[in-house]
Design a protein around this nucleic acid. Structure first.
Lengths: 323, 323
DNA sequence: CTGAAAGCGCTTACAG
DNA sequence: CTGAAAGCGCTTACAG
């Protein structure tokens, strides 16, 4: 089935392609007779015409796409919300958001879609970034640190600091750190752990006792025993899932939370509110993050420098029963 | 910064654009002298040349993109894996997978990217589907039922059947259904509930007692009391999250699982393995699903009809402690 | 108020 | 072995 082009519409309605283009793009508003306008629109509808994006992009030199490149790590609930929000917010600016999962050769991809902007939720290689800029694409990236070049940054070390601060404030002096077994999360994990370290150092406490724990009770029980024998009374977990594993490990050891071991997670997932005991955690406000990123992207596209959002708005300690 | 075009590369290397194109696309292998080839490649690299996707697509009439359109509902762990796998599998066929979150006007979108195929994880409107086909785009969709026109289907009613079957097999005669409070999940929920109904009817049991439960212990406790007073001894939950809420509700009522109320979830999320008691659940093999979908998409693109996968491979009851 | 023409960047018959 | 030329579908000065 051959493509319906603007030439078809022109023929069908007895006008030139120029007129078709004007009518369909609402250009030169009043300069087309109402009669012609109607005829063209009717013909377009009858033929089921839709303009070729490729031709349009080629002509104008820019598409209306924003490409989001996801990192290697599993999409959690926060990022999921961010993408939903971003899609909605940019849609109001006539921009379509497309998401790329996994890190297949980025070069192939942005060439294939010619996006107006690329938003990286992971760091781009320098060559990739250069090549994209050379092709006229806005390159934006989010950061896990306080990178001033990023359009949006939530310093992950602050997450760890918040956890350690709460634990220390509630009287614990020997902390443990429960890292994720999933290696793809390492970029996040090292930063959060650094935050715990920093806070411990600031208060003159010993460095945290580090253990990675699988998402099962046995692995967690091993870790719990190790922590206990090191005198640890409170554990900061990489996220709520890991924290739930620690809870299970403590239970498996016949001990209790928070009496024997206090636990703090990150993310505020539903399962953490429902566990026994309910998880104390660091919540990340996905809606606020999404809005901030969307604003930043929009500003970048306008050429105006975006205001740096206050990271304090994004992170919030939620105290429940586990610590 | 102006775009680097193949003409620039041609000028830089002292050949025609034709030759540049041949070299860069590995066409006519041996027919270009090694010397020329080297010169062109060096020039392209030096200039940082990357071809215009728009021009290429316009020329060839087809892009190498597969657009996945996500439904309204939140992306769960299963779909997340499916997208990752699909991306990887189709990458081997030189196809880039792009994902669209949310249901902003679909028409705008596929026009903007001219994908080779569109894979819907939700139903398309008939006009949308027609318009896409008219534009030469392959339209594929997954289904929640046994729809033969779908490239891939996991009948959600089977999920409910599996849950009910296990509960009935273990001696329960009065079942409850815990639905999700989130309205966007309704499409899934009604089908799973139907499966429970069907299985109950088949065995001559009373219809399940239906309650939607929020993801908090209080809401769940209300539901638990309602079930108890209706004589319910076992509950099939929409998914593991809801099941965890039911667990919390039972606890809040001072009752126990599975003694007073047995509970089955769906999804086999880590938190369900870690809860107390560990959740019996229906696992969906995301890897198998992803492979099946990828194969189906590839087959559709080749024009060959895909083999219907065996849904039995995808769904699996995992018996643990809650039922 | 409307049309003829150029040109976005690419690939590919078709000639040499 | 390599080049001149056409054409994919669109938009937009530029003429009427």
């Amino acid at each position: 089935m051959p493509r319906v082009t603007s030439a078809d519409v022109a023929r069908e309605s007895g006008v030139s392609r120029t007129t078709v283009s004007y009518v369909l793009n609402d250009k030169h508003g009043a300069m087309i007779s109402e009669d012609t306008r109607q005829r063209v629109q009717a013909a377009a509808a009858r033929l089921g015409y839709s303009p070729s994006a490729a031709a349009r992009t080629l002509r104008s030199g820019r598409s209306d796409l924003v490409l989001c490149v996801l990192p290697n790590w599993p999409v959690g609930p926060v990022l999921d919300t961010v993408l939903d929000e971003l899609t909605r917010e940019l849609a109001e600016r006539q921009l379509s958001v497309l998401v790329h999962h996994g890190r297949s050769p980025l070069a192939e991809l942005w060439r294939a879609v010619t996006p107006r902007a690329v938003v990286g939720f992971t760091e781009f290689g320098a060559e990739d970034a250069d090549a994209m800029r050379r092709a006229g694409i806005q390159v934006l990236s989010t950061s896990l640190d306080d990178d001033p070049r990023a359009v949006f940054a939530v310093a992950q070390s602050r997450v760890g600091q918040l956890q350690a601060r709460h634990l220390a404030d509630t009287g614990h002096t020997r902390l443990g750190w429960a890292g994720p077994a999933e290696p793809r999360l390492a970029d996040f994990a090292v930063r959060r752990l650094t935050g715990v370290h920093t806070e411990c150092a600031r208060r003159g406490l010993a460095a945290p006792v580090v253990r990675d724990v699988d998402l099962d009770a046995d692995s967690a029980a091993d870790a719990v025993r190790a922590w206990r024998s090191a005198g640890v009374t409170a554990v900061a977990a990489y996220n709520d899932e890991v924290a739930l594993a620690v809870l299970a490990g403590v239970r498996a050891c016949g001990l209790s939370v928070p009496g024997d071991v206090a636990v703090v997670g990150v993310d505020d997932v539903p399962a953490g509110r429902l566990s026994d005991p309910a998880l104390t955690t660091v919540a990340q406000d996905a809606a606020v993050q999404a809005r901030a990123i969307a604003t930043a992207v929009a500003a970048a596209l306008d050429g105006s420098p975006p205001p740096a959002p206050d990271p304090a708005e994004v992170l919030r300690l939620v105290v429940r029963d586990s610590a």
